Amino acid sequence: MTEELSPRASASEQGYEGALRPGTLGEFVGQAKVRKQLGLLLDAASRRQHTPDHILLAGPPGLGKTTLSMIVAAELDKPLHQTSGPAIQHAGDLAAVLSALTPGEVLFVDEIHRMARSAEEMLYLAMEDFKVDIMVGKGAGATSVPLELSPFTLVGATTRAGLLPNPLRDRFGFTAHLEFYGEDELARVVSRAAGLIGFALSEQGIAEIAGRSRGTPRIANRLLRRVRDYCLVHETVGDTESVRAALALYDVDEHGLDRLDREVLRALVERFGGGPVGLSTLAVSVGEEAETIESVVEPFLVRTGLITRTPRGRVATRLGWAHVGAEPPEISQIPGGGRTG
């Protein structure tokens, strides 16, 4: 039987992800270089009794950008104001947020590359001189009124750093590039989370979840929750067999591919002979939006070497053919070339 949920776990069911977030840099698992760099930055600012430089966190979803922003505020012992790029569609939206900040407050803007251009231009001055210009009136009688701001630290998060305009990117004093996690690091993430929710999980079970988490802590925590639910309902222990059964029920295979991943890979191999095939055609063949395939499915399939992108379209690799149990053509144009078999 699984263990009883801890008091902390029972209070966290409505905010599972939040309950598992580390509160300090010391508790944060992985990203060792980023943690050291960030720790030095915050420690130096504290000793100088000055607000830290603005921080840009770049990397794929689920690696801890939001968590690190919360840790920055906690380490500085300052409040945190959270918003997102899509929510700031006018300069006035940004002015309202900035004018409400208290001295030393940390402003976290998720998906900062999706801010409106007018707001980005206002942010340039705010980041450098802690002031903004507010336009009063309209037409020929309009005047610019400078508004002084309290010193603050901006923490921007982006999954697509290349979309940030150079003037904005250059105003960040520190840029951290978050990398995908190794299986050992993910095992530590799963072990820590299992302890926090009071779920007994074997070392082999931990390794199974870590190996199917696509290098992403958010996915590891999500799979852990599904395994916990499976064991609770079926009244089993968190051993390897139960973990495999739970993940099979939720269509997560031994490589971390889910139903949509396999559908895309199978369509590429079985319907289009391994490719090349265009993104829009591939998306239509599986009944999904092209943006979903490009941003959600494709990065993992490319990173694991199951497909590759070419100027002519997407192509299944030898590993991709093998994963769906199909034999590549005898003379193949797939990556690796030459004869097969």
Rank of each mutant, 00 (worst) to 15 (best):
L125I: 05
L224V: 02
V97L: 10
F272W: 03
L279D: 08
A246L: 12
S144M: 15
A87K: 07
G141E: 15
A187L: 15
L201N: 02
Q82T: 07
F28E: 03
A161I: 06
G39E: 09
L223P: 03
F174G: 02
V252G: 02
R160M: 04
E298R: 10
D253V: 13
L80D: 07
V277E: 11
G139T: 05
R303Q: 06
A91R: 07
V269L: 06
L40I: 12
R114L: 14
A142Y: 03
E235M: 12
G92M: 10
P7F: 08
I71F: 04
T304A: 14
S84Q: 03
V269W: 04
V269T: 03
G198P: 06
W321A: 01
G341Y: 10
A157T: 04
R312T: 10
E17A: 12
E298I: 11
A116P: 08
L301V: 03
T240V: 15
L260K: 02
R169F: 05
D184F: 07
A140E: 12
S213V: 08
V297M: 03
R266T: 10
W321D: 00
G137Q: 06
V296Y: 05
L306T: 03
A326V: 06
I334S: 09
A161G: 06
R262Q: 14
A316Y: 09
R169G: 00
A267G: 03
T102A: 12
A248E: 14
M127Q: 04
A142L: 15
E128V: 05
P328C: 13
P329F: 06
G238V: 04
A19S: 11
G238D: 09
R114Y: 06
D110Y: 08
Q204S: 10
A194P: 07
S150C: 13
T24F: 11
P7E: 05
P335M: 07
S69C: 09
G274D: 03
L20T: 00
E208W: 12
G313H: 09
M1P: 15
G336D: 05
E121W: 09
M135H: 14
M115L: 15
L168V: 00
H81K: 07
L223G: 04
E111W: 06
F272E: 02
P276G: 12
P311N: 04
P276L: 13
D229T: 12
L249S: 13
A245C: 11
P60N: 13
Y124I: 00
C231T: 06
V302N: 05
V269P: 02
P52Q: 07
A32F: 09
E179K: 14
L20Y: 05
T308Y: 02
A220Q: 01
V189K: 01
V284F: 10
M1D: 14
R222A: 15
S12D: 13
E294W: 11
E294L: 08
E289R: 13
V284H: 09
M70Q: 12
N166I: 03
T308S: 13
M122Y: 14
G238S: 11
V190M: 13
R226N: 11
